[in-house]
């Protein structure tokens, strides 16, 4: 009996080793979401605040999609949908292109998501989850790159660069109202990588903005009283 068992097991092994058919490269195309064209890692959520863009009533968020597969001459449709179960924004808060596609000859393409400013954004953040779906043309790429969350608001918060040093030497005590004015005066919201001299120069521009405005009758106040820069700023 023993030889029969051995023959049977070997037969199973042999049949188990039958060759899989392997697709040629480019036979199938995959699509996935990225934060930058060179990214290969999981897509990260996007945060946006209208507070950093004074005067804007709507703004465009570029959502990047990336191809695995062969480039083609023709545009190809992508299925990108709003996942209602994970979205708090109303349809009136945003706008996607009527047709979403990967343009010919492009391995990375941009889908314009237009965000609309509203009063609701001053008090709360809204979220949109955009999710890719497989279609006849594209299969889905890595699981971690199949959807992206875009959170947006018109809210502002103390940034990390507004340290105690910046407070003492340049901008004094933080308030949301002061930060908004600072952005309006200087056109920048982020001083993270700036030198001390550059931070000082922006603080001087802000100081003069306040003084110039006050001379024209503007009132700048926050919960701390008059909005001013640090008395140590010279």
């Amino acid at each position: 009996m023993k030889p029969l068992y051995i023959i049977a097991i070997l037969s199973c092994w042999l049949t188990a080793c039958s060759k899989d058919a392997i697709d040629q490269y480019g036979d199938r195309s995959f699509i996935y979401l990225v934060n930058a064209g060179t990214d290969t890692s999981a897509v990260k959520p996007i945060e946006y605040s209208f507070a950093f863009h004074p005067g804007e009533e709507k703004d465009t968020i570029p959502v990047l999609v990336k191809l695995i597969g062969k480039l083609t001459d023709q545009d190809r449709a992508i299925s990108l949908v709003v996942d209602a179960s994970a979205t708090t924004a109303l349809a009136s808060d945003y706008q996607l292109p009527a047709t979403i596609r990967l343009r010919g000859h492009k391995a990375v393409d941009t889908i314009d998501l237009i965000l609309h400013k509203s009063d609701r954004l001053k008090t709360g953040k809204l979220k949109i989850r955009l999710a890719l779906q497989a279609n006849d043309i594209f299969q889905l790429g890595p699981p971690a790159n199949r959807y992206i969350d875009i959170t947006f608001s018109d809210m502002i918060a103390r940034p990390g660069w507004w340290t105690s040093v910046v407070e003492t030497n340049f901008l004094a005590k933080y308030s949301d109202a002061k930060y908004r004015l600072f952005i309006e005066a200087t056109g920048i919201a982020d001083m993270t990588d700036l030198s001390e001299s550059e931070q000082r120069a922006y603080a001087i521009i802000f100081r003069d903005f306040l003084a110039r405005g006050r001379e024209n009758g503007e009132v700048y106040e926050d919960e701390n009283g008059q909005i001013n820069v640090s008395p140590n700023l010279f």
Partner: peptide, 25 residues
């Protein structure tokens, strides 16, 4: 336009703001 020298051992250091200084009146 007014700037503070970051290191006054160098003849040029520190940056001028690129907006004019406010002088009242």
């Amino acid at each position: 336009y007014t700037r503070k020298h970051v290191n006054n051992a160098f003849s040029q250091s520190g940056v001028y703001p690129n907006k004019p200084m406010f002088i009242p009146g």
